[in-house]
Design a protein around this nucleic acid. Structure first.
Length: 366
DNA sequence: TCTGGGGTCCTAGGACCC
DNA sequence: TCTGGGGTCCTAGGACCC
C-alpha cells in the first residue's frame, strides 16, 4: 500500500497536494434531499430497532454529534444517546451518483488524482500552482464549485504530501481550509495524537501509548531502531510521518482485486438451512457483479463469525479461472461446512472471490 | 459500547521447484 | 545420511481505510 510507492523522492521545489473531504457526506446528502432534516439530529446507519438493532452508525450530522453520537458507534448506543434522532438506512445509490458527479468536478484540477472512498480525494496540483497561496485560492475555487453544483460543503487540506494534506483537511471541519507548508509540517503535527496519522488505528495507538508515545511529537523523538524492530516496515513509515515526511504518490486506483459479500444475521443462529441459503444468496450477488465486470476468479474464501466474535477465514484456490455460479456455491459450501458445528451459534457469514483474470482472456489462461 | 460491510495490504509459515 | 538458498504461490489472520 503506502510503502510501495514510498521510495521515490521528489526533486527541489516539492509537491503541493490537496486532500478534499466531504463534510458528513451521507448525512449531508440526506439533508440536501430533505431540508427539514437539517434542524434535527440525523443518523445514517443500521436500523436501531428500538434498541435491539445490530450494526453501527455510518455517518451522522452535527446535531446528532451534540448528543455524543459518532460514526462507527453501535447503533444501539446511538439510539440510547439520542432516541429522537432521525435514523436512516444508507441510500448508497444516491451517494454513489452524487460522489461520481463530485469526482468529475475534482478531476478537472490536478495533474494526478486519487479517489479515496466515496467522499474523499487527493489532488496533486504541483504543476498547476506556483506556491501555497495559489493553492489556497484553488481550494476556494473547488469548494465554491462543489457548493454551487451540489449544495454540499467540504473541507480541504493543503500540504506538501498526502499525509499532511489529509490531517490538515480534518483540522477545520466543516467547510474549512487548512494550509500547512513543508517547513511547518513537523510543528503542525507534533501536538496531535498519534491516532491522527495514517495507518495508526486503534491497536497501533494502544501499542504506542504503552511505549509512552501519545503525540506525534513523542513519536518524532523516539528511538527509531526500537520502532523499526517493533513495527517492521510500518515502523519506518511512522518515523518519517512523525517528521511530516511522506513520499507516497497520488495514484489513480487500479482494478479491484477482490469482490465479497457478508451478512450479519439479525440473531445468532444455528439454523443450517438458513445459513446455507444465505451463503447461496451471497454467491449469487457476487456472481452478478463478476459477470458485469467481466471477471473470472480463481480463489474463493469464506468467512464465519461465531456469537463470541471468534472469526475464521478459509480459502481455496482452484486450478482454473471461472465465473460459474454453481462452482462458486459448491466451493463455498465445502469450505464453510467444517465450521458449522452444533455448539456454536453463527453471527456472520461471508464469501470473497479474488485472484482475478479478465474473462476476455479466458481461453488463454489456466 | 457489544461490536456493519466492502475493500487493501502486510506478515508469517509452509509447499514446492530449481 | 539429516541438510542451502532463492523464488513463487498459497493460506490464515490481522490491521487499517471509508
Amino acid at each position: 500500500m503506502v510503502l510501495q510507492a514510498q521510495s521515490r523522492s521528489r526533486g527541489i521545489g516539492g509537491r503541493v497536494i490537496l486532500h478534499v473531504d466531504m463534510d458528513q457526506f451521507y448525512a449531508a446528502v440526506e439533508e440536501r434531499e430533505r431540508p427539514e432534516f437539517k434542524e434535527k439530529p440525523v443518523v445514517v446507519g443500521a436500523d436501531p430497532k428500538d434498541g435491539r438493532g445490530r450494526g453501527v452508525v455510518s455517518t451522522c450530522n452535527y446535531n446528532a454529534r451534540k448528543y455524543g453520537v459518532k460514526s462507527g458507534m453501535p447503533i444501539t448506543r446511538a439510539w440510547k444517546l439520542c432516541p429522537d434522532a432521525i435514523f436512516l438506512r444508507p441510500n448508497y445509490k444516491l451517494y454513489i451518483e452524487t460522489s461520481n458527479r463530485i469526482m468529475i468536478i475534482l478531476r478537472q484540477y490536478p495533474d494526478k488524482f486519487e479517489q479515496w472512498g466515496l467522499d474523499e480525494a487527493f489532488l496533486d496540483i504541483t504543476s498547476k500552482v506556483r506556491n501555497f497561496e495559489e493553492a489556497e485560492k484553488l481550494a476556494i475555487t473547488i469548494k465554491r464549485e462543489i457548493h454551487n453544483k451540489e449544495k454540499l460543503t467540504c473541507s480541504i487540506g493543503v500540504g506538501p504530501n498526502k499525509l499532511v494534506a489529509k490531517i490538515a483537511s480534518d483540522f477545520k471541519k466543516p467547510d474549512g481550509i487548512t494550509v500547512v507548508r513543508q517547513n511547518e509540517a513537523k510543528e503542525f503535527l507534533a501536538p496531535l495524537s498519534v491516532r491522527k496519522l495514517l495507518w495508526v488505528g486503534k491497536k497501533t495507538e494502544r501499542r504506542l501509548n504503552e511505549m509512552g508515545i501519545k503525540t506525534v511529537g513523542d513519536l518524532a523523538n523516539f528511538d527509531t531502531q526500537i520502532l523499526k524492530e517493533k513495527f517492521g516496515m510500518m515502523g519506518s513509515y511512522y518515523i518519517l510521518a512523525a517528521q511530516g515526511i511522506d513520499n507516497s504518490e497520488v495514484v489513480e486506483k487500479t482494478a479491484v482485486k477482490s469482490v465479497s459479500r457478508e451478512r450479519t444475521f439479525e440473531e445468532d443462529t444455528s439454523d443450517i438451512d438458513m445459513i446455507l441459503e444465505t451463503l447461496n444468496r451471497l454467491c449469487r450477488e457476487i456472481h452478478e457483479e463478476l459477470i458485469e465486470m467481466k471477471m473470472l476468479f480463481k480463489t474463493v474464501t469464506i468467512k464465519i463469525r461465531y456469537e463470541n466474535f471468534e472469526t475464521h477465514t478459509h480459502g481455496k484456490t482452484l486450478s482454473f479461472f471461472t465465473d460459474d455460479l454453481q462452482n462458486l456455491q459448491k466451493t463455498s459450501k465445502e469450505l464453510l461446512e467444517p465450521y458449522l458445528v452444533r455448539q456454536k451459534n453463527v453471527r456472520l457469514i461471508g464469501v470473497r472471490t479474488s485472484n482475478f483474470a479478465s474473462s476476455s482472456k479466458q481461453k488463454t489462461l489456466l
